[in-house]
Simulated scan of single mutants.
Amino acid sequence: MKTPFRLDDHPRRTSPLAPPPDGYFDRLPRRVMERVQPAPAAEMAPAGWLLTLSRPMRTALASAVLLGGFVTSFFLSQPAVSPQQPVATTTAAMVLATVPRTEMVQYLLASDQRVTLPDLAELPGTADQTVTDSFLQASSAEVQDILDEQPTDDLYL
């Protein structure tokens, strides 16, 4: 069994540590700063000038380089247009008009997704009105008669 340790059983020293040398605490801050500060670089690194800029200036420079890269990539991705050829403007309606009707019907019937009213509500307001002339041939009197035949609910009155 171990005997318990008691501090009172051990003798104490009268002088625990030797005194520091003369002027030690006066020279200590200078010696610490000499060790902490980096030695001056003989040559500046290739991007050393960047480190001399302040943080906000480096952030502004990085933002400008990034924005310039986006603008450059945008302009380089545009198709080349020669002055002799006019720019062909194709709209979605023009591209859709080139698809044969039978192919479009087959696609809609084979698709698992159905066209809903919100899908139709997203159509642009400048749609070609000549498309509807082939299947909407009702006069206003006929439309009014059909609406009058619809049952009305008394719940909403």
Rank of each mutant, 00 (worst) to 15 (best):
R55V: 10
F135A: 04
D9M: 15
S73L: 05
A127F: 08
Q37L: 09
T116L: 12
T126K: 07
S77A: 09
F25G: 01
V71K: 06
V65M: 04
R30H: 08
D26R: 06
L50V: 10
V115G: 01
E122P: 14
V115Q: 08
T90A: 03
F75R: 13
T130G: 03
D9K: 15
A110F: 06
R31T: 15
L17S: 08
D128T: 11
L61D: 04
V36Q: 08
R30L: 09
A88W: 10
Y107Q: 14
R35G: 10
A88M: 10
M33C: 13
A39R: 01
A92D: 05
A88T: 08
A41V: 02
R12D: 10
L66W: 01
V65P: 05
Q113A: 07
Y107I: 10
A60C: 10
P19T: 10
F70H: 01
F25T: 00
P124N: 04
R6M: 06
T14R: 13
G125H: 04
F135P: 08
A47E: 11
R114C: 05
L109R: 15
Q84A: 06
T102W: 14
A127Q: 05
S15C: 03
V36E: 07
T116E: 15
D133Q: 14
D128S: 05
D128I: 04
Q85N: 06
D119W: 14
G23E: 00
F70C: 03
E103V: 15
D26T: 00
A121Q: 10
R12K: 11
V95K: 02
A110Q: 05
P29K: 14
A42R: 05
T132R: 11
A121C: 07
V36L: 09
T72P: 08
S111D: 08
V105P: 02
P86M: 10
T59R: 13
M94L: 02
L28P: 00
R55W: 11
E43F: 03
Q84D: 07
A62S: 04
Q78K: 13
P20T: 02
L76D: 01
Q129M: 06
P16E: 11
R58I: 05
R31Q: 09
A80R: 14
Q84W: 12
S15T: 13
M94T: 00
S73H: 07
A127C: 03
Y24S: 01
M57F: 07
E103N: 12
P21D: 02
L53Y: 15
R35Y: 12
V95A: 00
Q78W: 14
P20M: 03
E34N: 12
H10S: 05
R12W: 09
F25R: 02
R27H: 03
R55D: 12
E122M: 14
P86R: 13
F74Y: 11
M104N: 01
V87N: 08
Q84Y: 10
P29R: 15
L108G: 05
V71P: 04
R13F: 07
M104P: 02
L76E: 02
F5R: 14
V131I: 13
R58D: 05
Y107R: 15
P20W: 01
V105I: 11
